[in-house]
Amino acid sequence: MTDRARLKARIQRAKQLERGFLLVAWLLLALLAAVFAGLFVSMLQTAWPRLQPDFFLSFASRRAAQAGILAAWVGTLVLMSITAAVAVPLGVAAGVYLEEYARQSRLTTLIEVNIANLAGVPSIVYGLLGLGLFARLLGFGASALTAGLTLGLLILPIVVVATREAIRTVPNAIREASYAVGATRWQTVWQQTLPAARAGILTGIIIGLSRAIGETAPIVTIGAVTFIAFLPPSPLSPNFPFISFDWVWSPFTALPIVTFDWTSRPNADFRANAAAAALTLTLMTAAMNGAASWLRYRLRRRQRW
């Protein structure tokens, strides 16, 4: 019986250690939640006086109380559309190629290693690529196009990886059924595989864009301007062909840029502006991440295979 008592004492000690670990883990989670809450609350507190409609509808200004983020959030939207136009077709096509077409070869391995590496390249290095290649060599200057191309390449690995993962979850039976009725490989991909994988791909795209929307270093490096008092030209033009792409050449600013600019000013008046811009940016990112989580959740529930 004393043996059993000793055994029980040993179990108690091991379990105490386990309870200790769980306590630490919970405290850690609480701490992280507290950090996030603290971040959010401090932003909200500082930003509160500036959260008025005219903050969102005014251009930059030398006077903190009159400065707004109109050019910045419009610029961010412009940037995101160019980024998506670059990253989505390229990323999805590359993902489809690697998953459905490529045979295991040295070239494929090289591409895969490249994508894994690109995902880890510091974003500021992309900024220098944009500066050296798009802005200077190709002569696009510090335009929305340069920034959009740069951010598009930056999130390319995210879109590729998400596409591959989504395609991998499509069961082979669906492909075989399509081939069995005489479809070609591309018809199978376009009509069966991609539609079946679309929710997963969309999730990846949203996550990639939510990463791009907050990226600051690369667009600062490209030479984005912080002080802009006009909007890019409208994509609709009164004359034939009624569509204009002048807006891609326009100089631009974006939310992370003005946040950075206002944060790094010594003048304390701009702190409230910085906080308000940061809050806007955080909410936009959180909304996108939330959409991605919701999609993923729905995807998991709907999937029947």
């Binding site: 996030f36 971040l39 907050g214 946040t259 950075f260 940016l281 990112t285 991440n289 989580s293």
Partner: peptide
């Protein structure tokens, strides 16, 4: 909680 933290733009973290 982790996803929220992962989604905060780094410029906001810098401000924080």
């Amino acid at each position: 909680i982790l996803e929220l933290l992962a989604g905060v733009p780094t410029v906001v973290f810098g401000y924080f």
